[in-house]
Nucleic acid binder design. Structure first.
Length: 1171
DNA sequence: ATCCTCCCCTAC
DNA sequence: TAAGGTAGGGGAGGAT
């Protein structure tokens, strides 16, 4: 590993800080040390922790630090400094860089950047050697321990009792930490080397855990002594990792795990029937919805599915664009020509060039092989980075993202840290630990709430950019992707060489990586790191080394040496279990330890696959390929949190709801399954009734069982019927005869999937036109109806936050052309605007990638198929339409804009399509007949004020036109999830938060509701609630897209009117046993959100609260409470009918509440209270 | 031998 | 209060 390849920080903007630097006293750094001695690596370490190991910025030199501190109140090294906020943060970064550059001769890396160390007592290696290593790799050595706060860590091999006490709040590590980190090339978690004074062995700990943590450790911040009883205070982090201890074995790994300790707070709450009913799985649907909305892991999974689909469709689009059907795909073509990776031209040229070059000869000439280049790109502490965009004041401070926002100092929160800033990691905090543990390590740690919406937006931007470089991309997760940039690199090389032949020695892969990084930083304001390698193994490992904020090309020739000192689980696919097995059976601790082992031994112990993987990995080899276009093999849903039943009817209700959940997910991707497997977690007899983790499952025994699913209406028996699945699920659970009170986790998985017709594997045969095979059968695709007389497809909001949207907004020209001119102009204008935002400098600068999203989707273009489909759900329609039109007409793209790039607030307030179209000025002349056809009650209609009548009418017409495509507004999750686009996406909805939102009314409730009643909620302005500023704001952005359109109605000026309006809505729907229509829901939600955001926060929130309470009361009065355990016996008709409508209403209510909570949280923190 | 089922393991 | 999901790879061992 050559340091020359190490990360480059902010190489672009150094000048800005010249002056800042001038003021700084840049001392020469100490001399270098000699090579470290080899030391065994600690056994536990996790990838994430390694990542954590790299730290963020801070000052390089004590003098600078001191200077900064002088002007600061806090001693916190990461605290505010003279430069203030973000500016200073960046300044320090640069300052550091400058200094490093100035000292280039000595500096080997930045491994210890931000680390300030004091060495206590005699050490081995010697103090001189350690000091050399520290300084040489970017750290700061302190000869004296004047002010403890200036030192981030202390190195020692032993401590006197007095010192133990003195260093009680410090991080004390063994010298091996430095030695091993240098050897590894990046900062290893210091906790792995925590100095243990009293050695009792200890051992491992939680899997994710890293630490070998010991107990008496330095008394460090952690905690006090060790734990002994399951005091939360155990040593350091006692991971009560959630996911962790499920079995007794796992629990045993966690020294501090309070096996016998019950969570008293939880116990107390659980004792309250009311609380339990409201907050545990006992409440059924409400709990499920709420839970999934807030589960980060659930979101992670959903996002991944969506992104895979996004990428899949992007590739598909490109494929067809390559084909003969050039036609309208100009955008695609353009992108291909401009982009780096799409065109093969460069690669071909390069092959030719290389083939003809003297060095390459022989058969290669005939078939030159393109050098593979893979990149692993991911964000640096994604969640935190995302939140910091809105809270720049916290930059540079130890920050974590978690659910609990309680400020209580002593609060031993069991909320899990999902993401931590590098500053936080420097204190020993790491992802996966509880907030309580984090607070022990760093009492002043700042907690930020989740912002799922934002993550998705950033992710879209990220993927959009990546796709502009290459479409050979594998979505790994919301913040991570693997790229095959072989062609892009080749292109860049050819391009550059043709202009500057002298640049042969340039590392074009790294050059490209920096271009990508710069682009992502520019667009997202977040740092990503990129690892480069000729295979996936190397690329993934290189990205660790690249962090934070850098890129690193791990050359094959250096691979073996680079990998040797790394812990086994740095290898992708190797986790805790494998690591332990390797150590126990073969004494293998590092990747290098694998080298002497024969392949046969490895295979014998780890099996053919893993054995071979390890054997190759040690040699830097890996033949795995990017996984593109995988077909779905299973669909599942499980909840292992908050499961606390009293009786079987509650468990039965839950299983049925879960069955419906799984069914919904199957329907969303248009698949059916033939095998149902249930997974049960039951409290371990020796585990406390209430585990340490609040509402957690604690230590459990697990069971599973499967049964074939049989759907009489389908020849193969495969089904996606919620009733069938739900009933089978309950039977399975019931067959175990478990005491319902002992259940702690339940899950359902459906396998043996098949597509609409035939098996998943081959559903494409039916696609006629021998076009290229569409990799994603379920994806409808761009077959836009040329004849659509329905303007509806041109949506804007719809894509907005959904991933598909990201994809690109593809507009059907014909559709567009049919729009009234003013509206068309408006849309095009917006698109242009967006485009400009994204595309840096339009035009032909051939080298800059065009950040335009791949023209993937068609959601927009999608038009409902023939009327025969009308009776199906929106999703089904989409699917069907897609299936039919799939390979024919290529999409006509008018523009590809990523609406996602718009600021969040805008997204939220942006008018949805329905408004757009509704606003068309048309006479509101109608007849009772038409009204009835539109599902509007004539009497009610004529009672409305004129403006409202118009709204209603237009809305009704629009709805009728788009039939069930209803929710186009999509600004809110709910709709998004329910949108047709999502359906095809294969994801279950994506709502930003929860798929189910979207689905709610449209899927779970009886069909044909949506169109019936359309209630248009008045614009905020009309309520006189909005301040002048708000009005101005609205006028400027969120208002209507049609400038000519007059302001909305002004009749509803008081709360009473609004309430009456809602009442009408609820009552009318109740009469017809209709679920709320997406359009109405959207309208109400938008109204509420606007209300919340009004100037003078308090007022708006208060009014919104009143409305919510009012709505809730109406629901209670007309629909009653949802959870009626009595009527829970499975009755298909019931579930399929009224009960579902009922549920749809409640779900809508709670989802709306959740959505508002998000807004409120962003505004003032906390949630909306409806008490 | 190969396939199927029931797991465990891993990743984010 | 907290929100410990979800999908795919693959191994062990039995059925074919």
């Amino acid at each position: 590993m050559k340091s020359s390849q190490s990360t480059d920080y902010f190489e672009d903007d150094q000048e800005d800080f010249k002056d800042a630097l001038m003021q700084m006293d840049v001392d020469s750094l100490p001399a270098k040390a000699d090579s470290p001695t080899r030391v065994a690596l600690p056994e536990k370490r996790k990838l994430e922790q390694l990542e954590e190991g790299d730290e963020e910025e801070s000052d390089v030199n004590p003098h600078i630090l001191a200077t900064m501190r002088q002007k600061t109140d806090k001693n916190d090294i990461y605290g505010a400094s003279v430069f203030g906020d973000y500016g200073q943060y960046m300044a320090r970064k640069r300052a550091k860089l400058q200094i490093q550059n100035a000292d280039m001769t000595e500096k080997k890396s930045n491994i210890f950047e931000g680390i300030e160390i004091y060495i206590n007592g005699r050490v081995e290696p010697s103090l001189q050697e350690l000091r050399g290593m520290i300084v040489e790799h970017g750290g700061i050595f302190h000869a004296y321990l004047t002010k403890k706060s200036l030192v981030t860590h202390i190195l020692a091999m032993n401590l006197t009792p007095a010192k133990v006490k003195e260093f009680a709040r410090m991080r004390v590590a063994r010298p091996a930490w430095i030695v091993e980190s240098v050897k590894a090339g990046f900062l290893l978690p210091w906790t792995d080397f925590k100095l243990v004074i009293d050695q009792r062995a200890d051992l491992a700990q939680g899997k994710r855990g890293d630490q070998t943590l010991l107990r008496p450790v330095q008394a460090s911040q952690l905690g006090k002594a060790d734990q002994a009883a399951g005091k939360p205070a155990t040593t350091i982090k006692d991971p009560i990792y959630m996911t962790d201890p499920v079995t007794m074995e796992q629990a045993a790994r966690i020294p501090s795990y309070a096996l016998n300790k019950s969570n008293l707070a939880a116990q107390r709450l659980m004792a309250q029937p009311g609380w339990k009913q409201e907050n545990t799985a006992t409440s059924g649907t409400k709990f499920i919805n709420n839970y999934y909305e807030n589960s980060r892991l659930h979101h992670l999974s959903m996002w991944k599915a969506e992104l895979k689909d996004l990428v899949s469709r992007a590739r598909e689009q490109n494929d067809s664009a390559d084909g003969p059907s050039s036609g309208d795909a100009d955008e695609i073509q353009t992108r291909k020509q401009m982009g780096h990776g799409v065109s093969m031209k460069g690669a071909e040229l390069l092959k030719t060039w290389e083939a003809s070059s003297p060095s390459k000869k022989g058969k290669e000439t005939a078939q030159p092989v393109l050098q593979r280049v893979y990149m692993h790109c991911d964000f640096d502490s994604f969640f935190v980075a995302a939140s910091l965009l809105a809270h720049p004041e916290h930059r540079g401070k130890p920050t974590v993202v978690c659910h609990s926002q309680s400020t209580g100092e002593g609060a031993a929160s069991t909320s899990e840290v999902a993401s931590s800033s590098y500053e936080a990691r420097a204190t020993g905090i790491h992802n996966g630990m509880s907030l309580g543990q984090a607070r022990q390590l760093c009492p002043e740690v700042i907690t930020l709430p989740y912002e799922f919406e934002r993550y998705k937006e950033l992710s879209l931007k990220f993927y959009t950019i990546l796709l502009s470089f290459t479409d050979e991309l594998q979505a790994v997760s919301v913040d991570e992707a693997l790229l095959d940039v072989s062609h892009a690199v080749a292109n860049l090389k050819v391009q550059t060489l043709s202009q500057d032949p002298a640049s042969v020695t340039t590392d074009f892969a790294k050059l490209l990586a920096e271009q990508i990084r710069a682009r992502v930083l520019e667009v997202t304001q977040c740092q990503i790191s990129i690892g480069i390698g000729e295979n996936l193994l190397l690329a993934r490992i290189a990205s660790r080394r690249a962090k934070p904020a850098g890129s690193y090309h791990l050359l094959a020739q250096d691979a073996e040496q680079f990998l040797a000192p790394l812990p086994l689980d740095m290898i992708w696919g190797v986790g805790h279990a494998t690591k332990v097995k390797a150590e126990e059976k073969l004494q293998i601790k590092t990747i290098g330890d694998i080298l002497p082992k024969p392949r046969t031994s490895l295979v014998r112990i780890f099996g053919p696959a893993m054995g071979d993987k390890l054997y190759k990995a040690a040699r830097g080899l890996d033949d795995s390929k990017l996984q593109l276009d995988q077909k779905r093999k299973s669909v599942s849903a499980e909840i292992n949190f908050g499961i606390r039943f009293e009786a079987n009817d509650q468990a039965a209700l839950f299983m049925r709801k879960l069955g419906q959940e799984v069914a919904s997910r199957l329907q969303a991707i248009d698949m059916k399954g033939r095998l149902l497997t249930i997974k049960i977690m039951k409290r371990h007899p020796e585990a406390p009734v209430e585990p340490p983790k609040f509402m957690g499952h604690g230590i459990c025994e697990q069971f599973s069982k499967s049964v074939p699913l049989v759907d009489a209406s389908n020849s193969s028996g495969a089904t996606h019927d919620g009733s069938i699945i739900g009933e089978a699920a309950w039977k399975l659970l019931d067959s175990f005869n478990f005491d319902p009170r002992e259940l702690r986790g339940l899950g359902l998985q459906v396998t043996k999937l098949e597509g609409k017709e035939g098996t998943t594997t081959e559903s494409e045969p039916k696609l006629e036109s021998g076009q290229k095979k569409l990799s994603f059968p379920a994806s409808p695709d761009k077959g836009a109806k040329s004849t659509s007389d329905q303007a509806e497809p041109v949506v804007d909001g719809e894509l907005s936050t959904s991933f598909e949207g990201l994809t690109a907004e593809t507009l059907d020209r014909a559709t567009l052309d049919e729009l009234p001119e003013d509206i068309r102009e408006e849309i095009l204008g917006q698109l242009r605007e967006s485009a400009n935002k994204v595309v840096e400098v339009p035009d032909a600068q051939a080298k800059q990638p065009v950040p335009v999203i791949a023209p993937v989707d068609d959601d927009i273009v999608e038009v409902p198929g023939p009327s025969s489909l009308a009776s199906e759900t929106p999703r089904a329609q989409q699917k069907a339409a897609g299936a039919v039109s799939a390979s024919n007409t290529p999409t006509k793209s008018v523009g590809h804009i990523t609406r996602q790039l718009h600021p969040k607030t805008k997204t939220i307030l942006a008018p949805n399509t329905s408004i757009l179209f509704t606003k068309q000025k048309e006479a509101n002349q109608t007849s009772r007949e038409e009204l009835q056809e539109l599902g509007i009650d004539p009497d009610w209609y004529f009672d409305l004020p004129k403006d409202l009548q118009r709204e209603q009418l237009l809305h009704g017409r629009e709805s009728a036109r788009k039939k069930k495509f209803g929710s186009k507004g999509l600004m809110n999750l709910a709709e998004r999830a329910g949108s047709p686009s999502m359906a095809k996406a294969g994801g279950f909805g994506f709502g930003l938060d929860r798929g189910r939102l979207a689905r709610s009314p449209s899927i779970d409730a009886p069909r044909n509701e949506g169109v019936k009643l359309e209630v248009k909620f008045p614009e905020m302005v009309a309520l006189n609630l909005a301040s002048r500023a708000e009005q101005a704001d609205q006028g400027a952005k969120s208002h209507t897209k049609n400038p000519n359109k007059p302001n909305p109605p002004t009749d509803l000026v008081n709360m009473g009117d609004i309430q009456a309006h809602i009442k009408r809505w609820v009552v009318t729907c109740h009469k017809g046993q209709l679920a709320p229509s997406p359009a109405d829901i959207d309208a109400l939600r938008k109204w509420l959100i606007k209300c919340l955001k009004m100037e003078g926060t308090g007022t708006g929130i208060e009014k919104a609260t009143i409305i919510m309470k009012w709505w809730r009361e109406l629901l209670r009065a007309h629909w009653g409470e949802v959870r009626d355990t009595k009527s829970m016996k499975f009755d298909e008709e019931k579930l399929g009918g009224i009960e579902q409508v009922n549920e749809a209403w409640w779900r809508t209510f709670w989802e709306t509440k959740a959505e508002m909570d998000i807004v409120v949280r962003d505004m003032i923190g906390g949630k909306l209270s409806l008490k």
